[in-house]
Design a protein around this nucleic acid. Structure first.
Lengths: 241, 241
DNA sequence: GGCTGAGATTGATGTACATCAAGGCACTCA
DNA sequence: TGAGTGCCTTGATGTACATCAATCTCAGCC
C-alpha cells in the first residue's frame, strides 16, 4: 500500500488542488473562474459501501461529481426490476438525467467508500451564464453522456459486450492516471451482468473463456488485461476505437 | 387530404409563428429573446427521402431541429453494421451527441420528405450565455436525450420493447397535437427492428400477435392503437408511465 | 481455527428469438 | 397487362444465452 491522503482531508480539496481538474467540470476554466466554481461546491463526507446519495423520485436540486471511489446509478421499473445504468469513476458527473424531469430518475449508490462534490444546479446554471467556458464544459459532458448511453444500445453478443465494457473501464482508468491493464473491479459480477443485460453466470463463464484465451487474468476483483489488442478485437471495437 | 401549407413556405416560418415553439428550443423564451434566436437559425430546403443531413466523422458545426417529417440517426461499427440510435419528430433536436467529440458520430437521414432548422452551435453557445432561459432549455433537452437513451438499455422481451416503442411514438405524437392512437409509421419494419435490436420478422410476428389480441390494427404504415391500456401493460410500463 | 454465508463457479436443461427459406402483396415501369 | 422489385409475412430450424441447481471459495467472526 502506497501512502495515501486520508479521505477526510482529500474531500476538502478545492478544484485547484484536485487531481481531477483535467477531466472534471473545471476543465477549461481560468484560475479566477475556478475559484468562483469552488464557491458553489460542497464536499461530502465519505459515503459508506451501499450508501445512497439520492433516490429516484426525489426532488432534483444537485448534480454530483465523483471525487474518489465509485458510484452506480440504477433505475427500477414498476415490476421492481432494477437496472444499473452506469458506473461512475472519479471526475465523472452523475444526476444529469434529473435536469429535464426536475426529479431524480435513478438512485445513486456508493460502491465501497467514496466521496463526491455536490453542486447546486441552480447555482451552477447561474454561474454558467457568467462563465462561457463553464457552460461549454457542462454541455460537453452532457453530450458525452448521451453518446455513452447510446453506444450501449447496439446489438452485440455477450462476449462483445463484456469485452467492450472492460475496455471502457481500462481507458477511463488510464485517463485518470491509473494502469489501463490492471485495476480493481469495484462491483460484484451480478452488477456487471445487470448493467450489460446478461446473467451473472454468463459473466463468470466469459471471464473463464477470456482467461483460457490469454486475454485477461481475473482473481476475485483483481483484473489484469494481458492482451489488450485481442480484447479490442473481441469487442468488435464498438467501445473505444 | 386536408389543405396543407406548402413545404417551401413552411420551412421559412420563424420560431414565433412555428407551431413547435412549445416543444422546441424556444420554449421559455420571451418574444424579444426569441427574435434573437431566430437570427441564428437557418431554415433548410426540404430533404428528400433517404437524403443525408450529415454523416459520421464530418466536422461538427451545427445542431438541427426537426421542422416537419422525420429523421433517423444511425451509427456504424467497423464491421459495417448499422444501428439506428433514434427517430426524430418535429420539435426534436439531433446532432447533440457531436458536441463532445466535435465531430458527428452518427449519420442523419430523412425519412420521406422533411425539413429542419439548422443552428450554428458556436452562435447558439454565445447566445445561451446571454439568454439564461435558452441555456436552461438547451440543458433540459440534452438531459431528456440522456434519459431516452438510457431507458432503451433496460432488459426487456421483444414484445415489451415493441409495445414500449409504440407508446413513446404515441405520446410524442400526442404532444405535437396529433392523434395518439392513430398515426403513420414513417419507417420500414426493418428500421424499427434494427432500432430495437430484433429481427424484422419478429416485428412482423409481434404486430400480428398484437392485432389478434385486439391491441392494435396495422395496415402497411397505418397504425391504429385500439387498446392503449393493454399496450401499456404489455410494455411493462417501461416507456411512458 | 473451524463455522457461516454471500458471492462465484460449473454443469444440465430450457426457451426466446435469430436465421434461413419460401411465398405474398403492392407499386412501378415497359 | 404482366414482369420486376422491394417490403412484408409466414413457417421450419438452429443457437446463444437464461435459468435452475449444485458445489466451491474465501472474508468475516466468534
Amino acid at each position: 500500500m502506497a501512502a495515501q491522503i486520508p479521505l477526510a482531508s482529500q474531500s476538502f480539496l478545492k478544484c485547484g488542488q484536485c487531481s481531477l481538474g483535467k477531466l472534471c467540470l473545471p476543465l477549461g476554466l481560468e484560475r479566477q473562474d475556478m475559484h468562483r466554481l469552488e464557491e458553489i461546491i460542497e464536499s461530502s463526507a465519505p459515503y459508506r459501501e451501499n450508501e445512497k446519495v439520492y433516490e429516484a423520485e426525489q426532488g432534483f436540486n444537485r448534480i454530483y461529481a465523483v471525487k474518489s471511489g465509485m458510484f452506480k446509478t440504477l433505475v427500477a421499473d414498476p415490476q421492481g426490476n432494477e437496472h444499473i445504468v452506469g458506473f461512475h469513476l472519479p471526475g465523472e458527473l452523475f444526476g444529469l438525467d434529473a435536469i429535464y424531469p426536475q426529479k431524480y430518475v435513478s438512485t445513486a449508490i456508493s460502491l465501497g467508500t467514496s466521496t463526491v462534490c455536490a453542486i447546486n444546479y441552480r447555482d451552477l446554471e447561474d454561474l454558467a451564464t457568467k462563465l462561457p467556458s463553464l457552460q461549454r464544459q457542462l454541455m460537453s459532458l452532457m453530450s458525452k453522456e448521451v453518446h455513452t448511453s447510446q453506444s450501449l444500445n447496439v446489438d452485440q453478443t455477450a462476449e462483445q459486450k463484456l469485452a467492450a465494457f472492460m475496455l471502457t473501464l481500462s481507458s477511463r482508468y488510464k485517463q485518470r492516471g491509473y494502469s489501463p491493464t490492471r485495476f480493481n473491479l469495484s462491483m460484484p459480477r451480478r452488477d456487471i451482468a445487470n448493467h450489460l443485460n446478461m446473467a451473472a453466470e454468463t459473466v463468470s463463464r466469459l471471464f473463464k473463456r477470456f482467461q483460457t484465451e490469454g486475454v485477461l487474468a481475473v482473481q476475485r476483483n483483481d483484473l489484469h488485461i494481458t492482451d489488450i489488442d485481442k480484447l479490442q478485437r473481441l469487442a468488435g471495437c464498438a467501445a473505444s476505437c
